[in-house]
C-alpha cells in the first residue's frame, strides 16, 4: 500500500512495478488461493451437512447457556474454513508467499469436517 501511495506521482511506474517484481510468486499465490478457497468452501458445505446429521444439537432440556454455546460452536465450525482463509489472508499480508500458503494449508489440515466423513455412530456427541 505504501509503495503505491509513494509512487502515485509517476504514473507509468505503477503498473510496471508489481508485474515485474513477483510475476511468478503472485501467479503461484493466485492459483494457490484459488485452490484453497475452493477447499474451504467445500469444508463449509461438509460441516453444514455433517452437523445437520447430528440429532442431539437441538436439546430442549439443556440450559440456555449450553444451548447458545452449542449453536455458536456449530456456527463457528460451519464458518471455520472461510473464516480461516480470510483471517490468515489478513494476518499474513506482510509475510512471504510460502509462509502465507503454509498457514492456509495448516487450516486445511486442522479444519477437516470429520463430522461429515465419519459415519454417525451411537447417540453421543458434543455439548
Amino acid at each position: 500500500m505504501s509503495e503505491t501511495a509513494g509512487a502515485t506521482p509517476k504514473k507509468p511506474v505503477i503498473p510496471a512495478v508489481p508485474a515485474a517484481e513477483g510475476s511468478t510468486t503472485s501467479r503461484v499465490l493466485l492459483v494457490g488461493y484459488g485452490i484453497l478457497a475452493g477447499i474451504f468452501v467445500l469444508y463449509a458445505i461438509g460441516w453444514a451437512l455433517g452437523l445437520s446429521r447430528q440429532t442431539h444439537i437441538d436439546r430442549p432440556e439443556a440450559s440456555a447457556l449450553s444451548q447458545f454455546m452449542t449453536i455458536l460452536t456449530s456456527g463457528l465450525a460451519i464458518a471455520s474454513g472461510p473464516l480461516w482463509f480470510a483471517s490468515v489472508y489478513i494476518l499474513t499480508r506482510k509475510n512471504r508467499t510460502p509462509v502465507k500458503l503454509a498457514w492456509q494449508v495448516l487450516g486445511v489440515v486442522l479444519l477437516v469436517p470429520w463430522v461429515f466423513i465419519v459415519p454417525p455412530i451411537g447417540s453421543g456427541g458434543f455439548n
Binding site: L76, S80, W84, L111, G122, G124, F126
Partner: peptide
Amino acid sequence: GKALVFILGLVVVAALTISLNVAGDAAAYS
C-alpha cells in the same frame, strides 16, 4: 490483530472439539 487471532483460535477449538467428539464416539462404539 489480537482479537482476530483469538477469534480464529475459537473457530479452531470449535471445529476440533466437534471432530474429537465425533472421532471419540466412533472409537468408543466401534
